[in-house]
Design a binder for these strands. Structure first.
Lengths: 238, 238
DNA sequence: CTGACAAAAAGTGCATACAGTTTTTGCATG
DNA sequence: CATGCAAAAACTGTATGCACTTTTTGTCAG
């Protein structure tokens, strides 16, 4: 959030981590669906866009590729990753496990301030529910990421964050009608369950929530839902 | 080991992915404890060692940092990561979840060839149990990685592999007496349970196995076990 | 028109150069 | 001798250039 500002004051000094800034920007663009799966990300354009050399842009792409958000093939232009249906399913399976850990660690231990912080995000989700679709998806993701951050466990935070972004990207591929507004209520219930409830109860609710998100998108478009040009044009053939 | 040779024949051609080669070599060196947590990895030396420019070495370090095997701080020499005790605990917690998924997917579905392949690794572990300590640790890790690969699920494979390496690194920090030979028997039992048993049974055994590995090392050295110079020298003070 | 194919354009892969930042070293000083 | 400090050495951060590859474009024969 504050990084963007810091990048501006280019006093000739070394400059705070530019690679990270580009990664942050791209992650956000991807999660908000300003960038779609398959979109091209040439190093030149990227560098030019952010006012850095290809070296930096390239490094950012490498990082994002490691996170599974970008596909990087030798001698080819980088593209926003296009998760397969199986990938999406696996990502959600892992996500359920990881977030269950988050909830287990947090159940009954949220501070007043933390509850407030989470509620604020859900509030924002509520506000954004009729605005740009991208924003509400980002906020929904942010809710889960913030939750993970509250465990204070760096390793867990890292994996949850990464998997949440990948899940968001997967939904961009497979969820036809963007059906994530209902999440607002579920998120509120989650806060309550984690705040008051016993761990098991809260975990169960998180399981439910994630499974619901997954099926709303993944299962409903059961099977292929491939964006392959061949398939898209099939109905028009002859 | 063989990579170095290949790097020599510089025929001017494009050359297959050098970054990946360096990563592989370093991962292996780390898991075999040829490199210890905290060891320095200057870009120059690394590049020279592998016959590439700093650009490539740097990129490899970035990749490994993303995997949690290397610590990378601005303007500082990269070092092999030094996981905290909490990190180690969290890594094992996540590992249990991930490997449970592997077992669940594999239970009762191993082909003859796969069983043979796994058995071969355990055999190698047995052979190596009195040789170089590093080798047996690497083989034990390889067992789990191979298992994950048998699911054919790229996402799961990636996370299991990464977390296994991080677990290995954590053990390098916290496990005093290298106590991993007993794993041979446990690995054999695991193969059997996955081959024949129902998923629940096999999962339970995997849970046990991992928890055993974790406690043999992590819990036994309960609490600090910090490699901090201050602590090491404490007994000698005065 | 349609294909094929070659030249031009767009991009990536990698080394290198140079600026800036630690870290080390060497020395003088209290 | 310990201490500070400044110069040298060791490294990292980043842009740029060149070689090589892929993609696009343009042209010409069928």
């Amino acid at each position: 959030m504050a990084e963007e500002k810091r990048e501006q004051k280019r006093s000739g000094k070394t400059g705070g981590d530019r690679v990270a800034a580009i990664c942050t920007a791209l992650r956000r663009a991807i999660i908000e669906r300003a960038l779609s799966p398959g979109d091209r990300l040439p190093e030149d354009s990227l560098g030019e866009r952010f006012g850095v050399s290809r070296t930096i842009a390239r490094s950012a792409l490498g990082q994002l590729a490691a996170e599974g958000l970008v596909d990087l093939r030798r001698n080819r232009i980088a593209v926003v990753a296009v998760p397969s249906f199986e990938d999406a399913r696996d990502i959600f399976d892992i996500r359920v496990d990881l977030e269950r850990q988050v909830v287990r660690h947090l159940a009954g231990k949220l501070t007043e301030a933390q509850v407030k912080q989470l509620t604020a995000i859900v509030e924002a989700e509520h506000q954004a529910r009729h605005g740009a679709e991208g924003i509400s998806i980002r906020l929904a993701t942010e809710f889960h990421v913030r939750l993970a951050e509250m465990t204070g466990k760096p390793v867990l935070i890292r994996y949850v964050t990464e998997i949440c972004y990948r899940a968001g990207l997967s939904l961009a591929v497979f969820s036809r009608p963007h059906s994530s507004e209902c999440a607002v209520n579920e998120h509120l219930e989650l806060i309550e369950a984690i705040r008051t409830g016993p761990a098991d109860k809260a975990c169960a609710l998180m399981d439910e929530h994630l499974e619901a998100v997954a099926s709303r998108a993944l299962l409903q478009s059961s099977g292929a839902r491939s964006r392959d040009l061949m398939d898209i044009l099939a109905p028009y053939t002859e």
